[in-house]
Nucleic acid binder design. Structure first.
Lengths: 334, 334
DNA sequence: TTGAAAGCGCTAACAG
DNA sequence: CTGTTAGCGCTTTCAA
């Protein structure tokens, strides 16, 4: 910047004003400065800038999801990015992989870079460390799950009701032996879905068979193994409920085969996924919309950054049971 | 930091040394400082830090992809993020949506934040603006496509050969009327794939029918429409080649229907996609591995950041024809 | 082992 | 309309 000032024969302040498009510079002078900037390839150093403009925004936010490679979170991320762009904001991203240690690391790295705000998919465990950042002025919005020990805006979906409706749907068709295939129980959303599963049974005065319940499935392959186990039981389930996209796809791997006839087991999965409608039979799912979720979270965050100090809000978005076929397979007559 | 120093009764320098884990501080003093840090909730301001430590790294890189919501780029991003973490580096992300203006904007925003390096999926058009950043010390690696007017490490796949093999495969089974469904021609990778398509014909002394060629498909819906058009022709194609995942899925939408019989048209798509193996028939694809691509790009970038000044390298990864069924449908006898 | 002084690149606040 | 001065929070350099 000093070089530019020298080259244009003006002071640092004038260059600063031109660079920031501030008024009060003679067009002629400005033009001279612009030329010098271009000739020297000068670019403003935002680090130094933010340092001086204290209390000002860095126009950077952090987004911490579970796994960026999961299409659900990828779509959510894209929505956040688009919203950020409207606010001239860049986005730092990180995946926590459901590890609290990793989440802390990433949050810390983001905050050291003085992000204006953070959108977090909180893993299990206490989030008091986020409270500290809030006190330092970082705005925080939680997505997909609430954070323990934290007062922050939160965007959720009605997991319990979604799962309830899915299982209700299976019960309505006469299924009684309904298997549950689920991710880690310590994930809030998963726990809620399992609650919904159980409640649907309870509403009919029934109780799910514990032999048909599998928790802790962390990968598609895990889910495939678990589904195959259930199917192989002496008295197998006539229907399956899968707690998220990964598990549903793993279950599809077990049930759908291109070479042999598809297993005659009904299936409803939580989460929409690509081509669910093109399988044979197409997969009935409880759909949530990651784009709306991300956009909502971003809207809340930028509201806070803009100065909204109202009490923390909890937004609960609706899920939608998408009936396609796999959930409408009748139980085999026994 | 000043507050911490005061609270611990030491100078700023001592605090700085403790914060950075530098040697030469009495354990006793360090403990006192640590306590003050914890009590005051102090966190180092990396902005100020980087400002002073000139010539040092910001431990931040930028990643600019076409569309983060696309599973291919999501997986690539995740690979880059994982590599970055090994180098204690955070990642800024952005989607260009194939717009040069947007790419420039994002690159500029990243560079103003003084990223150490940039991994870019370059859109069409001159990338001289990236040259300027290189001159300023930002390391640049291109992925998926080379950048015009730029000397930088580049990670590609053998698009032309991949497409050639796909079409070769269709020709080998007797198909002659093979339709081409493609994204925008100004995208390098797409152009290469179209070249491969044409070359496969040429190798047999054939020429593709121009009536069966559709360029510029930007969305799944575009592809569906185009595929339906081709199928509806008086003399329709007996096979289709789709130039990328989005187009392949759109074509699947046109060909595969859960209610009626699948259209008897062979299909080979470029890019792997989830559940391709579970459709009926499963989809034959030319697979590339986004994780390896991202990891390779990151490896090159961190090598450069670490000081590698050898001439720019071009890494070409292989594609793999995954034969599954949809590409092995014989042409209808005429 | 610790501290004081200087300054990174920029902008706020005030002069001219 | 333009410039001067001071200082953001930290680290480098040198001295104690």
């Amino acid at each position: 910047m000093r070089d530019v000032a020298a080259a244009a024969g003006v002071s640092l302040m004038t260059v600063s004003r031109v660079v920031n498009g501030e008024p009060g510079v003679q067009p002629e002078t400005a033009a001279r400065v612009e030329r010098a900037i271009r000739r020297l390839g000068y670019q403003r150093n935002d680090m130094a800038r933010q340092l001086r403009r204290k209390g000002q925004l860095t126009e950077t936010i952090g987004l911490l999801v579970d796994d960026l490679a999961n299409p659900f979170f990828a779509a959510l991320t894209r929505a956040v990015e688009d919203a950020a762009r409207l606010h001239d904001c860049v986005v730092l991203i990180g995946s926590s992989n459901d590890s609290l240690a990793r989440e802390k690391e990433v949050v810390s790295a983001f905050c050291a870079r003085r992000v204006d705000g953070l959108i977090v998919v909180p893993v299990a465990g206490s989030h008091r460390f986020l409270k500290e950042q809030q006190d330092l002025g970082v705005k925080v919005v939680c997505v997909d799950r609430p954070a323990d020990n934290l007062d922050a805006d939160t965007v959720l979906v009605d997991n319990r009701r979604g799962a309830y409706q899915a299982v209700r749907h299976l019960l309505d068709q006469g299924h009684r032996r309904i298997g549950y295939l689920g991710d880690r129980e310590d994930i809030w959303a998963i726990r809620e879905r399992f609650e919904g599963f159980t409640e649907a049974f309870a509403a009919d005065g029934l109780v799910p068979d514990p032999a048909l319940i599998r928790h802790g499935l962390r990968s598609r392959a895990d889910a495939t193994r678990a589904a195959e186990e259930l199917i192989g039981l002496a008295s197998p389930p006539t229907a399956l409920f899968a707690s998220n996209d990964l598990v549903t796809m793993g279950t599809v791997d077990a049930l759908y085969s291109s070479s042999r006839q598809r297993e005659a087991v009904a299936l409803v999965g939580f989460d929409e996924f690509a081509l669910a409608d093109k399988l044979t039979p197409p997969v009935t799912v409880v759909a949530q919309d990651p784009t709306t979720i991300g956009a909502t979270a971003a809207q809340l965050l930028f509201g806070r950054i803009a100065g909204d100090t109202s009490p923390a809000r909890e937004v609960v978005l609706l899920t939608r049971l998408v009936i396609r076929g796999s959930g409408e397979i009748a139980p085999a007559v026994s």
